[in-house]
Design a binder for these strands. Structure first.
Length: 457
RNA sequence: GGCGACGUGGCCAAGUGGUUAAGGCAGGGGUCUGCAAAACCCUGAUCGUGGGUUCGAUUCCCACCGUCGCCUCCA
């Protein structure tokens, strides 16, 4: 398959360097709950993983939690809890949020605070080989030690200095130097180190943890486009310095476009507070609805969150669900999924064109519905649709209502009753039954094969 | 200011240097149905504006307009 590599700024043919695909995805800073912008990113990389596995690759997937950093410390202090409690709570919530999105769990979820020895070892080495220096208990990375600094984000130090936001730190040799190890202030969480009590800087943990759990080079390193600079740029600098440039840090850098809100047209971020909670979206539009919303555009394009788009995606999910759930006939010729399956695969191979792949799925759904209307066989095509939808992480499952299994015999009873009324042409009563059931979320659909029921999504 | 992305039918959104520019949602007409729902059939765009390259551009180049992102908070 082909993938766009941020580093080369072009689409390249992907294959892993070894037996398995080493995939590291930047996880959230756990100072606050995630929002659907995060969900978008994790859905994108979930689909990448699923497709790679579908193609026969073995994938080793690592995703970190950043659980020590200024925001967490400040937030914990503000609410009077400990950094650990705060982080733990948001990690727990992360898993609760992700579960209904059908996101495959990473194989390893390292946390910065659990990897301090590896981080210290890395910083020591960077000092030893001249890429870092200690200053007053802090340790900084020396960006001038790397002529290729800026290669990922396509910028150089001079142009960065032209930007207004670069503030020289009092101890920095160069304004672009970034902190690897930060001396702690009284009352802050701290670990012992050769430079006194302190804590890891923001970027170093991903280098230390990816190196430890996957080994370099990583085949894929992913995250949101907002991480390209400085986070990923700095990861490259420190990682390649650590290995003395004997090997590249990452082969393929992948970055998803950012989500924004329709009203403000600005990207969704916790710092602006313009976020939408994941659970609310899942509740209203379903996991499949959210997935289709995300996957209906290319992963590198920004997408705008809007009720209208989510509503459309929800209806689209129902369309696929109906196609897969409604039995076909037994006449020939059977609906043939092969050409559309090929279209799906071609789209996915082309830099994960999920929108194109979804298009093939909807055409496949139409093919199935058409065959069924003709009384033809649909099993094979339906199995293909399920399989390919699964590659996109779509469950196509009926919405669950609390206690619905207990209600089933009663629904069947009411349907039977309604059939009797219809036979007696008591349409007023039979329609009332149908309308009342609909109010309760049970939709009845009559067909030549009898009446079917489904839950309203 | 520097770097980058985007602007396709009512909405969302793929895509291609040249036969009919995917798909979803919404709308209109029809089939089926006692009625409905679902499904199926039919129905709409010359691709931001202005130039240029080319036999031919929505697709390549330039300019302009508009929107967005990054430039150490960030998925």
């Amino acid at each position: 398959m082909k993938l766009y590599n941020t580093l080369s700024r072009r689409v390249e043919e992907f294959s892993p360097s070894g037996d398995e695909v080493k995939m590291y995805i930047c996880g959230p800073n756990v100072y606050a709950p995630c929002h659907i912008g995060h969900a978008m990113s994790y859905i994108v990389f979930d689909v990448l993983r699923r497709y790679l596995e579908y193609c026969g690759y073995k994938v080793k997937h690592v995703q970190n939690f950043t659980d020590i950093e200024d925001n967490i410390i400040n937030r914990a202090r503000a609410e009077g809890s400990s950094v650990d409690e705060l982080a733990e709570r948001h990690i727990e919530q992360f898993f609760e949020d992700m579960a209904p999105l059908n996101i495959l769990k990473a194989h390893i979820y390292p946390r910065a605070t659990h990897e301090v020895p590896a981080i210290i070892e890395m910083v020591q080495r960077l000092i030893a080989n001249g890429h870092a220096y200690e200053a007053g208990g802090d340790v900084y990375f020396r960006v001038n030690s790397r002529p290729d600094y800026g290669k990922l984000s396509a910028r150089d130090l001079d142009s960065m200095l032209a930007g207004a936001r670069v503030q020289p730190g009092e101890n920095k040799e160069h304004p672009g130097d970034f902190v690897l190890w930060k001396a702690s202030k009284p009352g802050e969480p701290a670990w012992d180190s050769p430079w006194g009590k302190g804590r890891p800087g923001w970027h170093i943990e991903c280098s230390a943890m990816s190196l430890k759990y996957l080994g370099h080079p990583l085949d894929i390193h992913g995250g949101g486009q907002d991480l390209i600079f400085p986070h990923h740029e700095n990861e490259i600098a420190q990682s390649e310095s650590y290995t003395d440039d004997r090997k590249p840090f990452v082969r393929f850098w992948l970055h998803n476009g950012l989500m924004r809100l329709a009203e403000s047209e600005e990207k969704m971020t916790r710092h602006l507070g313009n976020l939408v909670p994941i659970q609310e979206v899942v509740h209203r539009y379903g996991g499949d609805g959210l997935r289709i919303f995300v996957l209906n555009s290319h992963y590198r394009s920004p997408i705008t969150f809007s009720e209208e788009s989510l509503e459309a995606a929800k209806r689209a999910a129902e369309r696929l669900r109906t196609a897969v759930a409604t039995p076909g006939g037994d006449a020939d010729p059977t609906a043939d999924p092969a050409p559309l399956k090929q279209r799906f695969l071609d789209a996915m191979d082309d830099d994960m064109n999920t929108a194109g792949a979804l298009g093939a799925l909807f055409d496949l759904a139409r093919e199935i519905n058409r065959a069924r209307d003709d009384g033809r066989k649909t099993e094979e095509a339906q199995a293909a649709l399920r399989e390919l939808a699964g590659v996109l992480g779509l469950t196509l499952a009926a919405p669950q209502a609390a206690g619905d299994t207990a209600a089933e015999p009663f629904i069947e009873l009411l349907m039977e009753l309604r059939d009797d009324l219809r036979d007696a042409k008591q349409y007023e009563l039979s329609d009332k039954l149908r309308a009342r059931l609909a109010q309760m979320g049970v939709i009845l659909e009559d067909s030549a094969q009898g009446t079917r029921w489904r839950l309203k999504s």
